[in-house]
């Protein structure tokens, strides 16, 4: 029986978020918190593998208490168990401190049921780094496989997985020993609407909630802001460029002016290639 753990994150919906023009910071109140879209694909892939090979899917997240709703979303997709690690001492973590905290939680989950596979989304839409997945893999000392866009085979008995990793001009077929970590591309699957029984189960589901004290052998100095080597020193709006010339008039007049600009620079079209 496979035990797959998907590491997920609750994020503000950056498409909707508004900036406070005075402070240049994100006004989080304006944005609903959602399951990071990339992570939905990670959970979906875990659920598909469970259906293929049998097993259980756990999800793990670090965040404030409302992150429970992101776990419930994963239960809707088909996850069996959810774990939230939440504690003020985790706050302000960069990718290094995040992967440390998550790896400690994974250690504890593995004690209950050994882990065969950790799956992460490609990146989060608020942090945009993609660094936590490989970081977790290094901390657990399991092979990191990033850019996974197809899982060919998982063979638990013989202890290996075969996947496709996306490359700039194609893909490579890689075999890795189990356990290992996949961070998956969005293209790996489509997340369908959740079946009603899952939705009902999710509504009633209560995830396991752990604080730092529930984890074992934790070095507090490696957590949160204190454990983060990177700091944001300055947040700034880039200098506004001078801006362009507005083409005035009605649409026909605007197009006329634009066309004369383009035709004046016809050399721009000369090396035109078939794209």
């Amino acid at each position: 029986m496979l035990h797959i753990v998907a590491c997920i994150k609750q994020v503000p919906d950056t498409k909707i978020i508004k900036m406070n023009p005075k402070t240049n910071t994100m006004d989080r109140r304006t944005a609903p918190a959602i399951l990071n879209p990339y992570d939905a694909h990670a959970v979906e892939e875990a659920v598909r593998l469970k259906e293929r090979y049998g097993g259980i899917v756990s999800v793990l997240t670090m965040g404030p208490p409302p992150a429970v709703s992101a776990i419930k979303k994963c239960v809707e997709i088909g996850a069996d168990e959810g774990y939230l690690i939440t504690d003020r001492r985790f706050a302000g973590a960069d990718t290094l401190a995040t992967s440390y905290a998550l790896s400690k939680a994974l250690d504890k989950i593995a004690k209950q049921q050994p882990i065969d596979l950790v799956i992460c989304g490609k990146m989060s839409i608020d942090g945009d780094t993609g660094q936590v997945g490989p970081g977790i893999a290094r901390r657990l000392d399991i092979p990191p496989l990033t850019s996974v866009n197809k899982v060919v085979e998982i063979n638990q008995e013989e202890g290996y997985a075969i996947v496709h990793r996306k490359l700039e001009d194609g893909f490579e077929v890689v075999r890795s020993t189990l356990p290992c970590m996949f961070s998956v591309e969005k293209t790996i699957n489509e997340v369908p609407y959740s079946p009603l029984p899952n939705v009902i189960r999710a509504a009633r589901y209560k995830p396991h909630i752990w604080s730092v004290d529930d984890l074992e052998e934790v070095d507090i100095k490696q957590l949160g802001l204190k454990g983060s080597p990177t700091i944001v020193s300055r947040v700034w709006a880039p200098q506004k460029p001078a801006g362009g010339t507005f083409l005035e008039g009605n649409p026909a007049a605007q197009v006329d002016q634009l066309l004369s600009v383009l035709l004046e620079k016809k050399e721009l079209f000369e090396t035109k290639e078939e794209i």
Partner: peptide, 23 residues
Amino acid sequence: ATSTGKDLASAVATDMPTGLTAD
């Protein structure tokens, strides 16, 4: 910040350990 560069840097930063700024 290619798929290879990001993969490698993330792993190296964790083992060193040191800070890594993405993209």
